[in-house]
Nucleic acid binder design. Structure first.
Lengths: 125, 125
DNA sequence: ACAGGTACTATGCAATACATGGTACTAAAA
DNA sequence: TTTTAGTACCATGTATTGCATAGTACCTGT
């Protein structure tokens, strides 16, 4: 077979923003569960805490994710009347959620170590 | 409104393996581009290098990903006859791929820092 | 000619980040 | 009393990627 190089550019585009969104998959739930392990919070507080650590998340992402976590038994919630607006939904970690959070933390640490080792080998050559 | 806690367990299951697969989204391409920045390789070599850094990837995952990276112009390839089996497809990074790899490395570093800060705050309280 | 080992390809499914469009509650202003 | 602004929450669909599954092709040895 003839040896030839080629790069077909007919499909997809290498997109930095898209890659960043992909990297966040599976990681946002770890962060949210971590934040709630510090204490109960309602969505706007969660968004603020995430922004504080440079993990900017918008409401259209957070609400469906909180619902998903609640539906899988990792979170519970309670309504709290507000003195200045509509009532707020305070989320809290369940016992199952606390256990699962530990699993996620370990998975994340292992992934970070593995990826960094792979990257470091590339830089050293 | 009545304050009540509830956790609806009717939808989905919190699955550690599934979460690990989600965390790998967007990260595998970073690792593959990193490995190829060290030198050209064909798929089996890439799988071995990934296994060496605890990033176990199977062929059904790698081949489509390599095709995708090739189609977006990040990789090129050439066929090389083998002395013991069918010819092999050696992949190499293109100039575009090298630039994109730097973008991915920066995105990864920023994500890791942000996530770790979020997790650490949870542990300190 | 056939079997085993190796290499590669095609395709569809599942899960999640995210965008978009929407409803509802409360307080203040008109 | 009605309207407006601010705040909080919800529903749904799209795009993307990891992964499983089924398959083809090449080369060597029997």
């Amino acid at each position: 077979m003839e040896n030839a190089e080629n790069t077909d550019k007919s499909q997809g585009v290498a997109d930095k923003a898209g890659a960043q969104a992909q990297m966040r998959k599976g990681v946002l739930e770890l962060c949210i569960l971590s934040i709630l392990s510090q204490g109960d919070a309602y969505p706007t507080e969660i968004i603020e805490k995430l922004r504080g650590t440079k993990l900017v998340v918008v409401e259209g992402t957070l609400y469906p994710l909180l619902t998903r976590l609640k539906n899988t038994g990792l979170l519970g919630y309670k309504w709290v009347e507000s003195t200045s607006g509509p009532p707020r939904k305070y989320y809290k970690l369940t016992e199952i959620g606390m256990q699962y959070l530990k699993d996620l933390q370990q998975s994340w640490a292992e992934l970070v170590e593995a990826v960094n080792k792979t990257i470091e080998q590339g830089k050293n050559i």
